[in-house]
């Protein structure tokens, strides 16, 4: 792999030299940063939805961009690209993560599951079917992330991972409505379909929805 300093002067260096020549020390962005470099690419294989893909990627490629732009798995969505909205949620080795805040190169050897791997229109995952049944969306943009997150969340409850809403840390976790909402707080729905999302997840989990008798 090429390291820093192996490359010829880039446009950014030229700009930096220009700035230095005019001697302006008060540029907010002008701190002593890393030297400018050309992109570095790397070979890796990603196991996505049971299929292994050989890829050559810029090291900067997020897992989300690898899925969407290189493997054409566009079900996972880019909302904020900063881990604040949850639209990019996928399962890595069964655990839900924000794929925008992870580098593809860090996932060689992992088993990645996206919304496309959970089910298909003809053979939906139980969580997908529950979202359809309960109308758990309006525009649908956050939905793949909501569904992947909900599937990961139910595994966490099964593994007895507590949450901020858990009243007794030493008791087994029960998926009440406040628990469900707290555990899904990393997925934002700007249409505000939350009550139907909560009902869909409760249905898929086999627990009573809020405000309804069991």
């Amino acid at each position: 792999m090429q390291g820093p300093g192996d490359f010829e002067v880039s446009r950014r260096d030229v700009l930096k030299l220009g700035a230095a020549a005019t001697a302006v020390p008060l540029v907010a962005k002008g701190q002593a940063g890393s030297p400018a470099e050309a992109p570095v690419s790397t070979q890796l294989s990603l196991n996505v939805n049971g299929k292994v893909h050989a890829l050559k990627l810029d090291t900067r490629t997020s897992l989300l961009d690898a899925l969407r732009d290189h493997l054409q798995l566009t079900g996972s969505k880019k909302g904020c690209d900063h881990g604040q909205c949850g639209a990019c949620t996928v399962l890595v080795n069964g655990r839900r993560i924000n794929s925008c805040l992870s580098l593809a190169v860090m996932h060689a050897g992992d088993k990645i599951t996206t919304i496309e791997g959970l089910g298909t229109p003809n053979k939906m995952h139980a969580m997908q079917a529950a979202f359809v049944k309960h109308d758990g969306f309006q525009c649908g943009y956050c939905t793949p992330g909501q569904i992947c997150s909900a599937v990961g969340m139910l595994s966490e409850v099964k593994a007895n991972v507590p949450s901020h809403a858990t009243t007794d840390l030493t008791a087994p976790c029960a998926l009440t409505n406040p628990e469900l909402r707290e555990r899904m707080s990393g997925n934002i729905c700007r249409c505000g379909a939350y009550s139907n999302i909560a009902e869909a997840i409760a249905d898929a989990a086999g627990v009573p929805a809020a405000g309804r008798s069991a």
Partner: peptide
């Protein structure tokens, strides 16, 4: 946060961890 010993002997630490970020972020 989910570790049995932490929940039992250092519940303050479990509680603080669970008060931060989201499920997805805490997994990473």
């Amino acid at each position: 946060a989910a570790h049995d010993k932490v929940r039992k002997d250092y519940p303050l630490l479990s509680r603080a961890l669970l008060a931060g970020a989201s499920g997805q972020l805490r997994n990473k």
